[in-house]
Nucleic acid binder design. Structure first.
Lengths: 230, 230
DNA sequence: ACGAGTTATAAGGTTTGCCTTATAATAGAC
DNA sequence: GTCTATTATAAGGCAAACCTTATAACTCGT
């Protein structure tokens, strides 16, 4: 467990880099700036500081990736956030689509002591309400398969595992259509020219059909389930 | 319910002024600076800003008192903190003497939405684990009687209502001696020249006696209970 | 009524995290 | 290979909260 005094800002940058895949390959700093609503110059400045602290590694003109320390710190932030999300949804009954943002405020104000007591209180959940994995207390997360709804073929079925990223607009939109983790679905039709998918949501034939743009379908992670036509 | 964007720093200043009695009379800015571990000059600067925002009123060379808005904002901060204290103690089983500080971090990161859901989850408690009242959602708190342990006469009995201020060293010291809210006690002896009190803690004659300096006894608020010798 | 201690203000400095504008360096597409 | 879009760096600024040092104004106890 890495415990260094890090500002809220540093935590947000590291979390963002992690969410953009900084554990694996280099993430362009421009992406980070964009996601954080900050100018590229500002992001660059911060990356220099994070590099000096050995939290990231900067490959010129390529992007940044997390070091071991950076990854552990980022995952500890993500752990805190996702645990709070569980609490806010399961216990406080707050809106599934909004708890991500509410938890984001809490995550920076949460001591390890509180985090671990909360984890125990919640029964050490392994996923947040949006299906994303909760890193363990050492800042490690298991790998997931990377199938998304957009890659499902017509006739194939799957179960929603997670939504990424957890943007409240996106989540609200999906929730309205019943597209939440655990839900099973089948692709009935895929319009040509990267057109929308038509889905059967749920197992029964009676369920309403849902149309979903391919761009959104890319954000829905899927566990494969054998469909009837397989 | 007052909802203005206020920085963590502003919230801490207002909370401090409230705790120092700024609802009633003017509080010297020096006291505030001292309590917050900040230079008097810094506190003065901030008070000027708070005055411009009509959160406090500054009587030159006297001190500051809270305006209506300031009082409501301060009490909303205190409400958040004390609700979190309840949660941390009752549900997460964290250390009674330490939750004050842990909750102080959380209080600034807690949206109204979360505060109110938390209050409901906890059953709308009226007091924090240290006995202090939780303001209602409109930022109002009832008045309390102001009897302290230091003013109890020999032979008199009382029940601990609250500890003020909630400093973790103080709380840990008192908890070690069984001096927690709800505990009843009797003053057996008061040493002369502002010397320490000797207390019987608990109702039974078998309970160990406790010696307590008068300075500390001033920080223990008491509800009067009829003693045997009354 | 004075002097000690508190309180107020002025002036100048630091850090953090952001900004804009401008220029230089590079990568990747054609 | 050149050109465009991205990326990096330099330079200068801003706001929030702090700081120190110095001076001025006031209160209150004796």
């Amino acid at each position: 467990m890495i415990e260094s005094a890090s500002s809220e800002s540093v935590e947000m940058y590291l979390k963002t880099v992690a969410e953009l895949g900084g554990e694996h390959g280099p993430v362009p700093i421009g992406r980070v700036a964009e996601r954080m609503g900050v100018s590229p110059v500002s992001a660059n400045e911060m990356m220099k500081r994070l590099g000096e602290q050995r939290l990231i590694q900067h490959q010129m003109y390529k992007g940044v990736s997390l070091t071991g320390d950076g990854r552990r710190l980022a995952n500890s932030v993500i752990r805190r956030q996702r645990l709070w999300e569980c609490f806010l949804v399961d216990h406080l009954k707050l809106d599934w689509a909004r708890v991500h943002d509410l938890a984001c405020d809490l995550e920076h104000a949460t001591a390890t002591e509180v985090t671990e007591a909360l984890a125990q209180y919640l029964g050490n959940p392994s996923r947040c309400p949006h299906g994303n994995p909760i890193p363990d207390r050492d800042g490690e997360v298991g790998q997931e398969n990377d199938l998304t709804l957009s890659r499902l073929k017509v006739g194939q079925s799957g179960r929603i595992r997670a939504i990424v990223p957890e943007s409240s607009d996106l989540l609200a939109y999906l929730a309205e259509r019943g597209l939440i983790p655990g839900q099973s679905l089948t692709v009935l039709e895929a319009a040509p020219l990267k057109g929308p998918l038509t889905l059967r949501v749920g197992d029964s034939q009676e369920e309403p059909q849902v149309a979903l743009g391919l761009a959104l379908a890319e954000l829905v992670q899927i566990d494969r389930v054998e469909g009837k036509s397989d």
